[in-house]
């Protein structure tokens, strides 16, 4: 019985259809923001050259980048894995962190500002050129239409 089921599945599998299904799910999740994740921005950086012609993907990547641009500078719990002198080490680390906190906050908040400005600039450039390209495409279409009409008139004469 199970063999029969396996046979049916073997012959029934359609890689093209499966990939189309997977793409539809992935695209829906991208639209829902499931993949707007700094970890993906990092993993995807080596794939960008392969996605040069994928306009929609660039928008998605910029969303991931926005998530990645801001370094988490909020306070964090200080722990110590070693049991021996654990509480003393935690106390020492807290003192050191207390001394350094101000300087690192200053540094990272400036870095976050720069990162945020850069992402905004990239998004702005992308939007600007997307709008320009759209306008040019519309103009080309209108000109092509005019040329087609003129050639019809020419043939008629």
């Amino acid at each position: 019985m199970s063999d029969q089921t396996f046979e049916i599945k073997t012959h029934g599998v359609d890689a093209e259809k499966l990939v189309a299904e997977i793409r539809a799910v992935a695209e829906q999740k991208m639209a829902d923001g499931v993949y707007a994740d700094a970890r993906i921005a990092r993993a995807e950086r080596l794939n960008l050259a392969n996605l040069r012609n994928a306009d929609e993907f660039l928008n998605f990547y910029l969303k991931c980048l926005r998530d990645a641009a801001f370094v988490d500078i909020s306070d964090f719990p200080i722990r110590e894995r070693r049991a021996f002198l654990g509480p003393a080490l935690v106390a020492l680390k807290k003192v050191i962190w207390g001394l350094l906190k101000f300087y690192t906050y200053r540094l990272w908040s400036q870095q976050n500002q720069v990162n945020g400005l850069l992402v905004t600039a990239v998004e702005g450039v992308d939007q600007k050129y997307a709008a320009k390209i759209q306008a040019l495409e519309q103009r080309v279409q209108a000109l092509e239409k005019q040329v087609a009409e003129l050639s019809k008139v020419g043939k008629g004469n």
Partner: peptide
Amino acid sequence: ANGGLWFRHYPDFEEALLRLLDDAALRRAL
């Protein structure tokens, strides 16, 4: 071959890999 899947980017990759991990019959068939 009808023997494998292909991905364009990470979201495709994650979805495809999850399918393959969770569906032994699909793996066998491909």
